[in-house]
């Protein structure tokens, strides 16, 4: 499952920075200019991606710089795969 803390993305405009951390439950910590508008969308995408990787529990911190859904999804997938990666330990 989630083995370590890992990040993906950047703070450039139209991007987002996603950090995944091991956790006992699903937690989403969302920061962005338009939280009211995008929190729901972001949570929906996050839960969906986690389900695709059969991960139930994780803490996600997302700093949104105006990312499209395609971007958000790619960043969550990348951060998640990096956090799940088996480093041979």
């Amino acid at each position: 499952m989630i083995a370590r803390t890992a990040s993906a993305g950047s703070l450039e405009s139209s991007d987002c920075l996603v950090t995944v951390t091991p956790s006992e439950s699903f937690e989403l910590d969302y920061a962005g200019a338009n939280k009211k508008l995008f929190l729901k969308r972001t949570e929906g995408v996050a839960r969906q991606v986690l389900a695709e990787y059969s991960v139930e529990n994780a803490r996600l911190h997302i700093q949104d710089q105006g990312a499209l859904e395609a971007t958000l999804r790619a960043r969550i997938e990348t951060a998640l795969e990096r956090a799940m990666e088996n480093l041979g330990s």
Partner: peptide, 15 residues
């Protein structure tokens, strides 16, 4: 490399 691959795939799928 992993991030770029995911980004391109995500855009090809939905954009």
């Amino acid at each position: 490399k992993d991030a770029a691959r995911k980004m391109v795939r995500s855009f090809l799928r939905s954009f």
